[in-house]
Design a protein around this nucleic acid. Structure first.
Length: 308
DNA sequence: AATGGACCTGCCGTC
DNA sequence: GCGCGCAGGTCCATT
């Protein structure tokens, strides 16, 4: 669809909704920049992002999180996992170990988001051997180059995350050129072809399966290993017990669990083992604990936690 | 089952 | 400004 075929709107004309989430329960700045989502930007005291085909603007007023969205029908409460009792969980977790307690204190209001599973599939397949600034650039370029236009708002055009079909049809020099995917261009193309043969139901059906099964079956997709599968489980399918173990989290795991992890490097077996140890220590929302520990480790707040 | 290496570049801490 | 570099890994070949 050409970009002049979508509506021209103004934020002042869009209705406002509100959720009872104050800064202690939801901190947009931390949540949107900690490496689980890549399309939110601060704009004049608010945050604007595109998620699941909706343009969303949100800001906080006292104990409330206010929001606008186009097209209407965006379920912000679901997106923010608002029914997860962050305060209660955090209170229960502080005693598990001083490291998680430190991370909880350092980043109050960090929430795990429930994002669109298809977007998560391609986003985290893209994220391999990369880092947050670069992933952000890749995701935003892809949306700018291949995303369907949704609307103009206050003179700016917003585009959706590219569909699998659009990624599959994209010329190779577009993926490697302006989007700077590097070797990931091949990965994305292969994954898009594989996914297009199955369709969206393949992903959404997994959300109804037990975590272990979903995690295993996701890895049937090319370019999806154990870590990307866990990102999908946690960020896209709502499995709070999924613990993505990347390089940072592996360092944390070695510090926490020491000799219980038999190898120095992350292997298929130790990946499983580390995840189980996290779940043992932090319970059914171990994925939330991972998110706090990952962000703390990445920003250098866990300097004292060295592997034995 | 556990390494070792390749794969594309932009960051970023370190010489 | 670089860099036997490293980064939210995965895949494949060897041992």
């Amino acid at each position: 669809m050409p970009s002049d075929a979508v509506p021209h709107l103004r934020w002042t004309d869009l209705p406002v909704a509100a959720l009872p989430l104050g800064p202690d329960l939801f901190d947009p700045a931390v949540t949107f920049t900690c490496g689980q989502t890549f399309r939110w930007e601060p704009v004049e005291g608010a945050w604007i992002g595109v998620a699941g085909g909706h343009i969303v603007r949100l800001w906080q007023e006292g104990r409330w999180t206010c929001s606008q969205a186009y097209p209407p029908g965006f379920d912000l409460a679901r997106y923010l996992w608002a029914d997860f009792d962050l305060a209660g969980w955090a209170a229960a977790m502080r005693s598990r170990d001083p490291w998680l307690a430190m991370a909880l204190a350092a980043f109050p209001g960090l929430r795990v988001l429930r994002q669109d599973p298809e977007e998560m599939l391609f986003t985290f397949a893209l994220a391999t051997a990369s880092h947050v600034p670069r992933i952000t650039h890749m995701v935003r370029s892809l949306a700018a180059q291949l995303g369907a236009p949704i609307a103009w708002i206050d003179g700016r055009l917003y585009r959706a995350f590219p569909t699998a079909e659009a990624l599959l049809a994209a010329p190779d020099d577009l993926l490697t050129g302006p989007c700077n995917l590097g070797y990931r261009a091949r990965v994305i193309r292969r994954l898009a072809a594989w996914y297009c043969e199955r369709g969206r139901a393949w992903l959404s059906d997994l959300a109804a399966r037990p975590y272990a099964e979903a995690h295993r079956r996701l890895q049937e997709a090319p370019g999806v290993g154990p870590k990307v599968a866990d990102c999908l489980c946690l960020f896209g399918l709502g499995f709070a017990e999924a613990v993505p173990i990347d390089a940072q989290t592996w360092k944390v795991a070695r510090g926490l669990f020491g000799s219980a992890l038999p190898t120095r490097t992350l292997t298929a077996r130790t990946y499983r083992l580390a995840g189980d140890l996290f779940r043992q220590r932090y319970g059914p929302a171990a994925g939330w604990a991972q998110e706090y520990l990952y962000h703390a480790a990445r920003t250098g707040r866990l300097a004292g936690l060295a592997a034995r």
